[in-house]
């Protein structure tokens, strides 16, 4: 390393900012780790961002898309692929992967890839998230929570996570433990009041905290994949704008009842519903559309209207060979 030194702190703040503005985002983040004053200066610059995704799996990571530079932080939890158990864990080191991107064409092409190793700076995973997100001018973070052996508690989640736009909760263990169920509920309780888009895959819920509790949050969008024992009552309580339920066992008769209620003026917020799954019976349009006074407007596309004059289209696609049916409902005009 060169012996040259530069006393940057002796420069006026506006000059320091000018120097920082010529640096790449990961270099600015590195500078912010040197002291509280450095952090404060970097925060004042409000680093703009295109997208960000926080991944809380056994090997936590943050991916930041700055446009022409992608920066990914991977926290190394220890030897032999040691896994994260909670957000309070302190990693042994931080791997920072930087990719320079040529985004002048439709396809983003990586022109250069570099990896740096930083020390942990005595920060836990939660504190690292808080530090990085405090620097960025961004309000649409997406977070991915991996359920299965990782403990998530509400205070740590609320204290360290930024304002999230979308939360994805994924449970991969076949038989979730009590702790897994508790962690799932903690993630939901921590973010349901503020986040408007949830995606839940195999999420273990119990009676004290069910899909109905999620529905009461008045979400903008809810995607549920592989729900456990869903009931029509659950669907009726989902006061969301857009809803996707995949691999569910709702019958066409249930859906017919749901659409009849919509015709009577229920679910006024609903604009889109996509239900896809194995119905266990021979799919028949007659069952789905019975009593809806639907008008066929295209191949397997039907138009219905509710008591307030709002029109919607229902599209049913069935694949009799594998017994799967897809029903798509979309409001088309008010």
């Amino acid at each position: 390393m060169t012996n040259l030194r530069f006393p940057i702190r002796r420069l006026p703040n506006d000059l320091c900012s000018m120097v920082l503005k010529t640096m790449d985002p990961h270099e600015m983040i590195a500078y912010s780790l040197t002291s509280k004053k450095a952090l404060s200066l970097v925060q004042s610059l409000g680093l703009p961002l295109r997208s960000a995704r926080i991944g809380m799996s056994y090997w936590p990571e943050i991916r930041l898309d700055f446009g022409q530079i992608d920066v990914q932080f991977n926290w190394d939890m220890g030897a032999d692929d040691k896994e994260m158990t909670s957000l309070d864990d302190i990693p042994v080191k931080v791997n920072v992967s930087v990719q320079n991107i040529d985004d002048s064409t439709v396809f983003r092409r990586v022109t250069k890839s570099t990896i740096f190793n930083w020390p942990n700076h005595g920060k836990s995973i939660g504190e690292w998230i808080k530090h990085i997100c405090s620097i960025l001018r961004y309000e649409s973070y997406e977070a991915f929570f991996h359920i299965g052996g990782i403990r998530f508690d509400i205070p740590t989640l609320q204290n360290n996570f930024p304002k999230l736009k979308k939360v994805f909760i994924n449970c991969v263990v076949m038989e979730p433990s009590e702790d897994d169920i508790k962690s799932t509920q903690n993630v939901l309780r921590a973010f349901l009041p503020h986040v408007k888009h949830f995606l839940l895959n195999r999420v273990p819920l119990q009676e004290d905290f069910s899909i109905q509790n999620i529905g009461m949050a008045n979400l903008k969008e809810l995607e549920i994949y592989n729900p456990q024992n869903p009931k029509l009552d659950d669907l009726l309580t989902l006061n969301v704008e857009r809803c996707t339920i995949l691999n569910d066992p709702f019958s066409l008769r249930d859906l017919n009842r749901f659409f009849k209620l919509w015709k009577k003026g229920s679910f006024p917020r609903l604009k889109y519903l996509w239900v896809h799954g194995n119905i266990g019976t021979i799919p028949a349009c007659e069952v789905l559309l019975k009593g809806l006074h639907a008008i066929e407007v295209g191949r397997a596309v039907y138009s219905i209207q509710n008591c307030q004059g709002i029109r919607a289209r229902i599209n049913m696609v069935d694949n009799v060979h594998i017994g799967f049916v897809s029903v798509r409902f979309e409001v088309v005009c008010f």
């Binding site: 390393m1 030194r5 006393p7 702190r9 040197t34 002291s35």
Partner: peptide
Amino acid sequence: SPEEIREIWMI
């Protein structure tokens, strides 16, 4: 790295 930056920029 952050520590090297501290050294070079005398932070």
